[in-house]
């Protein structure tokens, strides 16, 4: 890609990441949640991968690191959902309406679920582009 696309994607990348993190953290208060946050987070990385050739981007983040992160996040999500009752019991005192840290299980699973979706989409697009 040419220099305009490369520069604009490099400038846009942190803003896309911040928007995705905002969607994940604010999922229990405003429209958003795990799935849209993961898709937005993946969009940033996919934009970088498409704008730069993957050879130039590979020293920043490799596909294997995303696969490892996906494994960890999937395990964490399964654990969060299976032990949801225990986590709710632990976080019962912090539950408060309209508070950022008061989401309880929803807050935790939003973050973990957004990680799972983001890494899955990045791995899909990255492995397709690479070949």
């Amino acid at each position: 890609m040419n220099v305009i696309i490369r520069t604009s994607s490099r400038i846009l990348f942190p803003f896309i990441l911040v928007f995705g993190i905002y969607l994940a953290l604010h999922g229990h208060l405003s429209p958003g949640g795990g799935f849209p946050a993961g898709v937005v987070l993946a969009t940033g990385f996919i934009l970088l991968v498409i704008a730069y050739k993957e050879r130039k981007i590979e020293h920043r983040f490799t596909e294997v690191s995303f696969i490892n992160l996906k494994t960890i996040a999937t395990f964490a999500l399964v654990m969060v959902i299976l032990w949801g009752m225990a986590i709710r019991f632990i976080l019962m005192d912090t539950q408060a309406p309209f508070a950022l840290w008061g989401g309880g299980v929803t807050f935790v699973s939003n973050i973990v679920g957004s990680l799972v979706v983001a890494t899955a989409l990045v791995v899909i697009i990255y492995s397709i582009i690479k070949e």
Binding site: H28, P31, G32, Q95, G103, T106
Partner: peptide, 10 residues
């Protein structure tokens, strides 16, 4: 029950 204002998310 869930402490989340977003009913869809809960």
């Amino acid at each position: 029950e869930t402490g989340s204002a977003n009913i869809v998310n809960s």
